[in-house]
Design a protein around this nucleic acid. Sequence first.
DNA 1: CTTTAAGCCTGCAGGC
DNA 2: TGCCTGCAGGCTTAAA
Length: 275
Amino acid sequence: MPELPEVETVMRGLAGCLQGERIAAARLDRGDLRWPVPDGFVQMIVGARVDGFRRRGKYMFMRLDRAVSVLIHLGMSGRMTIDRAPLAHQHLTITTDRGRVVGFVDPRRFGALDLVATAGEDGHRLIVALGPEPLEAAFTARVLAAALAGKATPVKSALLDQSVVAGLGNIYVSEALFRAGISPYRLAGTLKGVEVKRLVAAIKAVLTEAIAAGGSSLRDYVQPSGALGYFQNEWKVYGKEGQPCDHCPGKPLCAGIERSVQANRSSFWCPRVQK
DNA sequence: CTTTAAGCCTGCAGGC
DNA sequence: TGCCTGCAGGCTTAAA
């Protein structure tokens, strides 16, 4: 489920219902996630008031009034629920003093829960090496060009590297490269200035549009309320192997969108549009 | 140093 | 129906 737009959507949903609430009870049913949930996790959050939320890349922080933040990572299959009956693989359940019920559900347990001092969020080992936030003004063509310079790895792999830019995953990298007209196989260090510029614009646009759409829903809803995101309807290449792309409908030269595997991940792209 | 492959887990779709 | 294989939105580690 979760790349940057989905995490942003989930966080907004949580903020809307949890901000200002006090945690009355918490139950941790499984602590063996990607990393063990730390000892004392439940005791630390019970009784605390939720002061706010922050997203960094694909990670969320739920800030408590104890100078402590809960770091939440959804991994591949993580979901948050609000006021819903417990689901299978619901590992954490939080109840607030006004009766809101929040669940953390993660079948594959690639997600993570941790505690970190709020003042030290950026120093957390999972956060400290993250690259720039793609939607912030500081993420410019100059910055991306500097990060890609000298890299011999395909641009697809470079963009999945969270230390280059934070928050992109397999779907939005494919979509951004299509919009920018750049082949996923181009070596990162060989992009020309104008191409990096197009790529930055494409990344910002696709993420912005996806957030506005409430993210992309695959098999499951992404929003804690249970509402479906609908950006999957806007995908141009992801999951569209064999279909004609928007830029060359019915053109005899266009064999359609290709799927190929790079770095153990599927890439979707149109060889005619992306050079 | 960089780049690739395997592994962590479970669920589901498709082929037989 | 059931079994098997491959694949999945992420990320780390070991190996090359």
